[in-house]
């Protein structure tokens, strides 16, 4: 049996229902990956600059670029694309599953087996 949660107010911090809970869970995971990468890479570059007085940042080169250039200028946009793909794949799978679930729910009473 299913019921609509019509008497309670859902929010990002208090999601209600299977679909919303699942959606909010994946949004939290994606946003954590997004925030950690942005803040983490800048702190990494900042700490290297402060601790080693630029020496290490001169030597660390990746794909022909200084490490901080590569991480912020090349990798982060790529990481954002990856996060968006992961989110979409999850949403597509979730949509298919919920559609299948709702179809089963509709078909059963029509066959008369549950009644």
């Amino acid at each position: 049996m299913e019921e609509k949660c019509i008497n309670r107010e859902p929010s990002f911090f208090r999601p209600l229902g299977v679909t919303m809970r699942g959606e909010v869970r994946v949004i939290r995971i994606i946003l954590s990956g997004w925030l950690l990468a942005i803040v983490g890479f800048q702190l990494f570059a900042y700490l290297l600059e402060v601790s080693y007085s630029e020496l290490l940042l001169e030597d660390l080169v990746f794909f022909n670029l200084p490490i901080q250039f590569w991480l912020s200028g090349q990798f982060l946009p790529l990481w954002f694309i990856i996060l968006c793909i992961l989110f979409n794949v999850w949403m597509d799978r979730n949509t298919v599953q919920s559609t299948e679930g709702s179809l089963r729910f509709r078909i059963k009473p029509a066959s008369g087996e549950d009644e």
């Binding site: 049996m1 299913e2 019921e3 609509k4 949660c5 019509i6 107010e9 859902p10 999601p15 209600l16 229902g17 299977v18 679909t19 919303m20 959606e23």
Partner: peptide, 16 residues
Amino acid sequence: IGLFLRKNVHDCTESS
């Protein structure tokens, strides 16, 4: 508007 958000935007169907 509360009902619209619950039903149409967040689809908060809950199994019990």
